[in-house]
Design a protein around this nucleic acid. Structure first.
Length: 869
RNA sequence: GGAGGCAUGGCUCAGCUGGGAGAGCAUCUGCCUUACAAGCAGAGGGUCACUGGUUCGAGCCCAGUUGUCUCCACCA
């Protein structure tokens, strides 16, 4: 093995796994299934840190479950990402001077599929670099045959149930993408703007009504002015007609509760075609709906003289003309939230238009109920509130998109009688009039319509496949909190509707990966860190470990280069520990010898504790805790103490003890490899292969906690020895005795002398001692010694004339003060009657024991000081 | 307007059911000790935001305050 860890073996290891079909899962009645559906990345996507975190968590859980005896399926795939992909393709075509119109629908789709072929595979290759152990033989795509079939089935079923309808409603329109988008796809941001005040004269000339608006250009489509019915100021105007400035129309003053008394002027212009609230008001009062803009945000013929102007230009012109006409009263600065398209950022335009909708109330209710009943559990729980809040206030979901890339809506219109037919296959004749002139709806479905079916469409739905039977409902979904609405909620109601069962029993929500300053990583800020570059430089294992350590469910995490360095160092540490074990292994089998000594028993105890804890942690998805415990165990218990302790046996001992030490080291190392495997799959597999001549680690069984291998007494003794070692090292450091220089020591303990003597080989090695004698009392120990007093033993290091008595007294005095503080703490605790009576007996006993030891230690320190005075 | 998160050593964050404050990085001291300088051995550094409450006991539970971030709603 090389001296320095070099992650270049990662690609080879990944191929080894796929060659051995290690990731595949099949219906297997002998095993319990464990299923995770991968959130499908967009085919336009490049791997970013968010994916890296998401993938790492999924892979950790999948590998853990697989090793724990489950038939673990992690099903991968990609999303066609209707609007995102279409935007990219349009951009690409624009470079060649082409538009959608130029190439036509078929030509466009040809290009889109070519795009999918070219880039769809890219993200998949990138996922593989991370070590993702998903079953690629089941890889799905939201527009493949199966998923498309599922979409048709779902659409038709919902339509037949009356849960899908087509109608004229106000929707969010992106004038740039030229499509409707759903409420969830609108992102609001605060923008500095103005509030314009201007007059609408009464038709009878008896006065004016002043209104305030943030959108003066839409006044051309006003069909009323509304006031609150309780507003005394305006009572007399209700029912009267107003002259709409800049037009020749007259509009009524109406009364509606929607208007808030005291805001602005208390009178609101009503534009049903371009404002969702106004649309509602218009419905209540039967107002006409006048659209003044076209699909590109250009003023249309209803805008009269303003026809042809862009909406922003129109605003300027309208305000100018209002001023000229003497209508403008004042302009106030005003900041308010403006909605933008989540894909392109363009300010969305609320527009009345004919679209397809999913009736949400009947679907949302069971989805809320199922989570309330605990059929799906969110981790952390607080995200359930967000989920409830959204579903309980949900409006109908606009699912039609004026795009070409996506699942085409299976609705057909009869050109002769106007009948609408919804069916999976195109009808040849109109069922109503028999006409053959049927035309399919031009629009496609919202990309999330197909993702909503992902947990079962990927398993074969609507076909009742063995896979669907076995793996559905899935167990766990891992995703970031930003798509709870888009995706998680929609999967839940879809699962309930079509499968009659929740799609997954648990949802683990993680945070977003931010940059070192806590900002979101984004292209525009240029602060993104490319995971592939990190993998190239430090290895995927290091990246994975740094992403999984120090994280807590649901909270964001920052990513900085130093973090990955420390993870890489840890991986390197593991590499070198393995290298050491391998160098000394010889023919020793990996096993626990018949008579392990107490250092062996100590590491076995620690190992079992870590097995127990890490297993519990992963089962609770406390990945950060599990990683931290492994880090600690591997670095400090195994490397710093155990390996160091066993060196004398390997270097100096006889063949037998050498073999025994090697066996133990190899045994513990292999257990570590298993425990570390979900976190750092490549390096652990590589080392395991070296140690076992090519066996497969990822198919090994996960270690089990073994109570028979927990040795409390030996652990106590070795910990006692460790304390003594630390105390000696401390003295050496303070006295400036280098580690290389061996020193003599007298170890004094009345009760532990025998145990210490047995531990001599460890103590001597770890504390770098040349000669040690073990005494049960300290008569005859030279005063020219530095002394360390632990509760386990006293150690005297004769340093002869090197000892500065005053310094030694000062040092011991510091020790004394610390010991005194301990004693006082114990005494005050134990003198508290409330504590004695109410605290658990175990704790009280432990405190009593500690106090005794501390008192003893304090007495010995004082005794030593006095002897030096 | 509504909901929620966070506030712990210089920095980034852990801290599970309440029982003597932890890690990594950074800083300082000493070491190329035959696995590892991507390392080893030590050290310093924290009234756990503030106030009050519950409790024998609070970083952890409750109430309030301040700061900060996020989500939802979208009053023209």
């Amino acid at each position: 093995m090389d001296k320095n860890y070099d992650p270049s073996f990662e690609k080879r290891i990944y191929k080894f796994w796929t060659d051995n079909r290690c990731f595949e899962a099949h219906p297997n009645p002998a095993k319990e299934p464990f299923t995770i559906m991968m959130p499908p990345p967009n085919i336009t996507g490049q791997l970013h840190m968010g994916h890296a975190l998401d993938q790492t968590l999924q892979d950790i859980v999948t590998r853990f479950k697989r090793m724990s005896g489950f038939e673990a399926l992690w099903l991968p795939g990609t999303d066609h990402a209707s609007i995102a992909t279409e935007v990219k393709i349009v951009e690409a075509m624009a470079k060649d001077g082409l538009t959608k119109k130029d190439v036509g629908r078929d030509g466009f789709l040809e290009r889109a599929w070519a795009w999918k072929e070219k880039y769809g595979g890219r993200i998949v290759e990138q996922l593989k670099r991370l070590g993702s152990s998903c079953d690629w033989t089941k890889e799905a795509f939201t527009m493949d045959k199966n998923c498309s079939e599922a979409v048709l089935e779902a659409f038709v079923k919902l339509y037949e149930k009356g849960l899908i309808y087509r109608g004229d409603r106000i929707i969010n329109w992106c004038p740039d993408c030229k499509t409707a988008i759903s409420d969830a796809e609108v992102e609001y941001s605060e923008q500095a703007s103005s509030l314009w005040y201007y007059d609408y004269p009464l038709a009878d000339g008896s006065g004016v009504v002043t209104i305030a608006t943030t959108r003066p250009e839409t006044m051309l489509g006003d069909t009323a002015v509304a006031v609150n019915p309780k507003d005394k100021k305006y009572g007399k105007f209700v029912g009267k007609m107003l002259k709409l400035p800049l037009t020749d129309r007259e509009i009524p003053v109406i009364a509606d509760e929607y208007v808030e008394i005291g805001f602005g002027t208390g009178a609101v212009k009503i534009t049903p075609a371009h404002d969702p609230n106004d649309f509602e008001v218009g419905l209540r009062h039967g107002l006409p709906v006048i659209r003044v803009m076209d699909d590109a945000g250009i003023m249309n013929e209803n805008a009269g003289a303003y026809k042809g102007l862009d909406r922003t230009e129109a605003r300027k012109k309208v305000v100018e003309d209002l001023k000229i006409g003497g209508y403008l009263v004042k302009i106030e600065p005003y900041t308010h939230n403006v909605g933008g398209c989540y894909r392109c950022g363009t300010v969305v335009e609320p527009i009345v238009s004919k679209q397809w909708f999913v009736r949400m109330k009947p679907l949302a209710e069971p989805a809320v109920e199922s989570v309330k009943r605990g059929q799906t559990r969110f981790i952390p729980k607080r995200f359930e509130k967000i989920y409830f809040n959204w579903l309980e206030n949900i409006k109908d979901w606009c699912i039609s998109r004026q795009l070409w890339w996506g699942h085409r809506i299976p609705a057909y219109y009869c050109a002769d009688c106007g009948e609408t037919v919804v069916s999976k296959a195109a009808p040849s004749i109109c069922p109503k009039c028999g006409s053959v002139h049927l035309k399919q709806d031009e629009d496609v479905l919202d990309t999330w319509f197909s993702s909503a079916l992902w947990p079962f469409s990927t398993l074969g739905y609507p076909e009742k496949t063995p896979e669907l039977e076995y793996f559905y409902p899935t167990n766990l979904l891992i995703t970031a909190y930003d798509i709870i609405f888009f995706w998680v909620a929609r999967m839940i109601f879809s699962g309930l509707e079509f499968m009659k069962e929740v799609p997954f029993s648990e949802v683990l929500i993680h945070g977003i990966v931010r940059d070192e300053k806590g900002r979101k990583m984004s292209k525009s800020l240029g602060n993104g860190i490319d995971p592939l570059e990190v993998i190239e430089k430090y290895g995927a294992d290091a990246l994975r470990f740094s992403l999984s350590t120090g994280i807590a469910p649901g909270s964001d995490t920052r990513f900085a280069e130093e973090k990955i360095e420390s993870s890489r160092n840890f991986i390197n540490k593991l590499w070198n520990a393995a290298r050491f074990v391998e160098m000394n292994k010889g023919n020793a089998p990996a096993e626990i010898p018949k008579a392990p000594d107490f250092a062996d028993k100590w590491i076995l105890t620690k190992l079992n504790y870590v097995v127990r804890d890490v297993t519990v942690n992963i089962n609770r998805y406390e990945i950060g805790l599990a990683a931290a415990k492994l880090y600690d165990f591997v670095w400090s218990d195994f490397c710093d103490w155990y390996i160091e302790a066993k060196k004398p046996m390997l270097y100096g001992g006889d063949e037998k003890s050498k073999t025994r030490a090697s066996s133990m080291l190899t045994y513990v190392l292999i257990e570590i490899l298993k425990l570390m495997h979900p976190f750092a799959p490549f390096i652990t597999e590589e080392i395991f292969g070296i140690l076992t001549d090519g066996k497969i680690l990822m198919s090994q069984e996960w270690p089990k906690y073994n109570k028979a291998r927990v040795y409390r007494n030996e652990t106590r003794i070795f910990d006692g020895v460790k304390d003594v070692v630390v105390a000696i090292r401390n003295i050496r450091a303070e006295m400036g005795v280098p580690a290389g220089k061996k020193v003599k020591a007298h170890v004094v303990s009345s009760e532990n002398a025998a145990a210490l003597k047995k531990a001599d080989v460890y103590l001597s090695k770890l504390a770098s001692l040349s000669e040690v004698d073990y005494l049960s009392d300290k008569t005859g120990v030279s005063d020219k010694s530095a002394a360390a007093v632990t509760s386990f033993a006293e150690v005297f290091i004769p340093l002869g004339d090197l000892i500065d008595v005053d310094k030694e007294i000062a040092r011991l005095t510091k020790e004394k003060e610390a010991a005194e503080a301990e004693v006082i703490r114990g005494e005050s605790m134990l003198s508290n009657q409330g504590f004695i009576i109410k605290a658990p007996q175990k704790l009280v006993d432990a405190e009593k024991d500690k106090l005794l030891k501390n008192r003893d230690r304090l007495a010995k320190i004082i005794e030593r000081i006095n002897s030096l005075l």
